[in-house]
Amino acid sequence: MPPTPFNPAAPSAEPIALYVHWPFCVSKCPYCDFNSHVRADIDEDAWRDALLDDLTHEAAMNGGRPLSSIFFGGGTPSLMPPRIVETLIDAATRHWSPTHDIEITLEANPSSVEAARFADLATAGVNRVSLGLQALEDEALHFLGRAHDVREGLAALDVAQSVFSRVNFDLIYARPGQSEADWEAELEQGLSFGTDHLSLYQLTIEPGTRFATLVAQGKLTPADPDHAATLYERTQAMTAEAGIPAYEISNHARPGQESRHNLTYWRYGDYAGVGPGAHGRRGGLATLRHKKPENWMNAVARNGHGLQSEEPLAPEDRAREALLMGLRLGEGVDLERIARISGLTIEALVDGNAIARLSAHGLVRREGPQLSIEPAGMLLLDAILPEIVAV
């Protein structure tokens, strides 16, 4: 019997998450569009009002639902004026119904300037910080294009742990020339800080980046895939032993301390995105805000919101997104749920023969409607997904 077709207009009692994008950086960095992101001075009141208008529009589309998380991201959100952060939190918790344990996260660079604002941001309502340490070696930080050094980064981490109830920081491994012993020592140091969450990413060479150019010029040799796999396996073993096992391919947490906001993405829940360039998913619609700050501001002034587009997602697109996101999680996906939200049959979602074949090799596990990638399969996730995802 086919599942009940998904109705985007139907009201939902499922929690929603809110993403707020603050596009400004205070200095040039390798991750930003210099022309649209670097600002020395902004009209703070105008930005507060525009963000409130954009948020109000999203809330009118799906207000009243439980709000499980707010995430402030973008250029340098930890340099947002705390009064704007507080105003946005207050508005969001009026428009939606905050859960009793609502998670309010802010991304931060580990600089002394930003760390000096942590206490005020905590007072404003932020209860979790995600700190971009990226490495615990000065030479590696220089290679990665970071402005901070290890001393400054660890000082910021110390302030964060004294102010926020929950702290995450990230590290990048499988860097050129990094030995197994090097990474073990760095990860052991990272684990010694006692945070409840770690994001541990392998260095990837993305097309169009500075790293890709260096590789093409023969000035950079990426880590050998077998060596990178060894580092991944050591990462899983060391974090599990420390009580911070992986719950997603690159994210580790003590039980109960997983990122609730990111889990909304990975579990394919709805999330509202406000601010320049913010994406969102709302009742089967994909929303996108104007990326350039000036264009976004003009759109808000003209329309009351910064939307550039609001497009219905085809059933196949909803199913594909849910599978590709959810199979990154150790818990995997519920195929019956994905069939329900997409209107497709389970047989149309996944290739049963491929699942059976990969299960025999210990790479995939299916128990009734639950499908997950085994730990050994996570190493091969990019190759496995095209094999088993049929949409």
Rank of each mutant, 00 (worst) to 15 (best):
M1H: 11
P11A: 13
A13M: 04
E14C: 01
H21W: 04
H21K: 11
F24Q: 09
V38A: 10
R39M: 01
R39K: 07
A40P: 00
E44V: 14
D45H: 12
D49W: 02
L52A: 14
S68L: 02
F72S: 06
G75T: 11
V85A: 14
E86W: 00
H95P: 00
H100L: 11
T105H: 09
P110N: 12
S111V: 04
A122C: 06
T123S: 14
E152N: 02
L157I: 05
A160K: 01
Q161M: 13
F164A: 11
R166P: 00
F169L: 05
Q178S: 05
Q178Y: 01
A181V: 11
W183E: 10
Q189A: 14
G190M: 03
T195N: 09
L200C: 09
Q202E: 13
L203H: 13
L203S: 13
T204E: 15
Q217M: 13
G218H: 12
L220V: 06
A223G: 06
Y232S: 10
Q236N: 13
A242C: 05
I244L: 15
E248N: 03
H252C: 09
P255G: 06
S259R: 06
S259K: 02
N262K: 03
N262I: 01
W266P: 04
R267D: 14
G269R: 13
Y271C: 06
L288P: 02
M297A: 15
M297P: 01
A301T: 03
G304W: 01
G306L: 04
G306Q: 09
E311F: 01
E316T: 15
E321Y: 00
L327C: 03
L329P: 06
V333W: 10
V333Y: 10
V333F: 10
L335V: 11
E336D: 15
A348K: 13
G352H: 15
A354F: 03
I355M: 10
A356I: 02
A356H: 07
D382S: 13
D382W: 05
D382I: 05
P386N: 13
E387N: 08
